[in-house]
């Protein structure tokens, strides 16, 4: 039921790797390492700034894919991938967007399971891609039926 969205992209959204957000995030994953939160440690590092943890893009706004209405409840996060050219640097601007990479349905124990793959992109202001992400969302038959009703 999502096949017609394959290939669609969201609008690009400007995000800032904000120091307060990085600190809060690092603490929430139990990793308040000085490289993420201590300015001095950041200054002495090769990037001369603090960096963000690899799963930090969870915080970013990736825009909206027109027409793709996902159910609010019952989605299962199946897989997650991040690929980096370099770490995200605190203070920098990253432009993010999403693409519907794939959608397939497979027969499972509890009916037909839908697998939606969303690819995320983050580029710097010069247009260089700094990271990509890939999220596989599992949508069960029960959840899909609720959407149609």
């Amino acid at each position: 039921m999502f096949e017609q969205h394959i290939g669609k992209c969201s609008n690009k959204v400007k995000n800032i790797v904000e120091s307060g957000a990085v600190k809060k995030f690092a603490e929430a994953i139990g990793d308040p390492h000085p490289i993420f939160i201590d300015e001095e440690t950041g200054k002495k590092s090769r990037y001369q700034r603090n960096i963000a943890p690899p799963t930090f893009p969870r915080v970013f706004d990736f825009g909206v894919i027109a027409g793709l209405n996902l159910p609010k409840k019952g989605l299962i996060h199946g897989e997650q991938v991040f690929h980096y050219v370099r770490p995200l640097i605190v203070g920098e601007e990253i432009f993010c967007w999403l693409k519907v990479e794939d959608y397939v349905e497979k027969m499972g124990k509890s009916g037909k399971m839908g697998f939606l793959v969303l690819k995320g992109f983050g580029e710097d202001p010069t247009g260089e891609i700094i990271f990509t992400s890939k999220q596989t969302i599992i949508i069960t038959e029960a959840v899909r039926k609720e959407m149609i009703v």
Binding site: I29, G30, D31, H33, I35, F36, S45, R46, I51, P53, P54, T55, E79, Q80, V81, F82, H83, Y84, R86, P87, K134
Partner: peptide
């Protein structure tokens, strides 16, 4: 991912898939 944070001065997490 925090298993790798102590090594930040040696490199970075380039690919992370789960």
């Amino acid at each position: 991912a925090k298993l790798f944070t102590p090594y930040y001065h040696e490199g970075f997490v380039k690919d992370y898939s789960v």
